[in-house]
Amino acid sequence: MKQFLLILSFCMLSLSASVQASGGYGITLEPAQNNLRDQDSLKRGAILFSNYCMACHSLKYMRYNRIARNLGWDEDAIVAEMAYGQSTVYEDVTTRILPGVAMDVFGTEPPDLSLMSRLKGTDYIYSFLRGYEQNEKGEWENHVLKGTAMPNVLEGIQRHSSEEEYAEAARDITNFLDYVGEPSKIDRLDLGWKVVAFLLVLLLLAYLLKREYWKDIEH
Rank of each mutant, 00 (worst) to 15 (best):
S127T: 05
F10G: 03
T94M: 07
G147A: 01
E75P: 15
E109S: 07
R37P: 05
S16P: 06
S117L: 00
K2V: 12
L119P: 05
E109L: 06
G23P: 05
Y64S: 04
Q39A: 14
I186T: 04
E91M: 07
K2R: 13
R159I: 10
Y126W: 12
T95S: 12
G181F: 10
V79G: 00
L189G: 03
L199Y: 12
G181P: 12
S41I: 01
A21D: 10
P31F: 02
E81M: 12
A68K: 03
F4E: 15
R66N: 12
N65Y: 11
Q158E: 10
G24E: 02
L203E: 14
E212K: 11
N152S: 01
M82R: 03
F106S: 14
T88M: 15
E139F: 13
V195Q: 05
E75F: 07
Q158G: 04
D187G: 09
K60A: 13
G85T: 07
A17M: 13
R171L: 02
Y179P: 01
K137Q: 09
E163W: 11
E109I: 03
L189M: 07
G100V: 08
I67F: 08
L8R: 10
G131N: 11
S114P: 02
G156T: 14
M82T: 04
E136W: 03
D74T: 11
N65M: 15
T95V: 02
A77W: 05
E168W: 01
K43M: 06
M12N: 11
G147P: 06
H57I: 02
H160S: 07
A80V: 00
H219M: 06
E165A: 07
Y179K: 05
A21M: 08
W193M: 03
D40V: 02
M103F: 02
P111C: 00
S184V: 11
C56R: 00
V19S: 10
E182N: 01
V195T: 15
G24L: 03
W193Y: 04
T88L: 13
V153C: 15
R37D: 13
F176E: 00
R63A: 12
E168G: 00
R130W: 08
I67W: 11
S117G: 09
T122W: 03
D74M: 01
E133S: 05
G26V: 00
R69V: 04
F198H: 06
L208E: 15
L13F: 14
F10H: 00
A80E: 07
G24K: 04
C53V: 02
L199Q: 12
F10Q: 08
G131P: 04
I47M: 04
A169L: 11
T148S: 05
R63C: 12
